[in-house]
Design a binder for these strands. Structure first.
Lengths: 196, 196
DNA sequence: TCGGGATGTATCGGGGCGATATAGCCATCA
DNA sequence: TGATGGCTATATCGCCCCGATACATCCCGA
């Protein structure tokens, strides 16, 4: 179980927390929420769902037409054959527990976006720790980038320099953005934000 | 041969075009040039070098101490045993040819940074096509992101909205940055930039 | 002179991604 | 009506990338 797949499990459980849906819709929702940051491919989605199913964190509802025994995922024929999944109590528990964690995985490029997307279900103090952790992480990256561009200052041509400057400015922007989020959070410490 | 590894080959050949070096240094240089955009891991670097070696695009110089026959890469013992690579004529040719291409791979997230890093060895008209191709690609992404955030406007909480807004603004910034590069290129059409 | 940190090459397993196959649903139009 | 094509939907497979790890050497300071 890699960090990445843990993250994916978290995201899927979070989406199913809002109600039962099928795989295709889960992908659509996740890509909609994460937008420009991350996309999810089918080659990742369905194995992840199988894993969650095996561990009993989600369950599939009875298929509408086929009244026979719910076929194994493996023997099931592909095609437009909707399989609606729902979260189990164990799944809810796993999600709540994961939402309370503040691992370094919550700060890195892949992790932070997903965690932020489920902030509405995250406690206020955990939110603050994640935001601050992410900010210091990005600041570290900024320093590394600056050292790099300093070292190669003389050697690099104008286009490479432009690339580095753009990267540097983007990183600076992310720090400012995070600071704004943190300040807003401080002003309204327990505001869970507008929820559906 | 995937798009990605083609790109990596291009980058390695470009670096070796400046003179012979060893693997570790190649990795350092590439990460220095691409900075915040892309990192290169060892698990990717050495197989790529082996591939280039097999295809005769690069060659390894005789090791300094071991006077015996140059051992196969496989049987070679690890450790601090510098292997200096140099580009071959066939390698130079392959690089020049790749530098002339304007595939869609030159516009995507991974590809564009690498191509830009070697603009000094790219002809002016090819540079312009790549810059404009990249810009229209990013503009497409921007529209997709906007459609997404439009669709989920009512449903999403404030943090997810903040994430999307940040992504949207970052994409807008990239478009402006590319426009600046294009304008500068138009003003000085044949300026190859400051070279070492 | 001894130890630790930077330098350096190499491999391995896990798993994500893109492509592809399959196929039901639905609108359009001759 | 039936043929076509595009969207929805599940599923799998191979390529190859990444992170971790191992191993080995160099260099510097205490």
């Amino acid at each position: 179980m890699s960090k990445r797949s843990q993250l994916l499990d978290f995201a899927l459980l979070g989406l199913l927390h809002d109600g039962p849906t099928h795989g295709y819709e889960l992908r659509r929702r996740l890509n909609e929420a994460l937008g420009a940051f991350r996309a999810l491919s089918y080659g990742t989605l369905y194995p992840a769902l199988s894993g969650l199913l095996e561990r009993g964190l989600i369950a599939q509802q009875a298929p509408p037409s086929t009244s026979a025994a719910p076929a194994t995922t493996g023997t099931r024929s592909p095609g437009r054959n909707r399989i609606v999944y729902e979260i189990t109590p164990a799944g809810k528990e796993a999600f709540e527990e994961a939402a309370r964690r503040t691992d370094t995985a919550a700060y890195d490029d892949d992790g932070f976006g997903v965690r932020l997307a489920f902030f509405a279900r995250t406690e206020a103090d955990v939110r603050m720790r994640i935001l601050e952790g992410r900010r210091s992480r990005v600041q570290e990256q900024l320093e590394t980038v600056r050292e790099n561009s300093e070292r190669g200052r003389e050697r690099l041509d104008s286009w490479t320099a432009a690339l580095q400057r753009h990267g540097e400015e983007s990183t600076e922007r992310e720090v400012r953005w995070l600071t704004e989020l943190i300040d807003a959070e401080r002003r309204h410490p327990t505001d869970p934000g507008p929820q559906p």
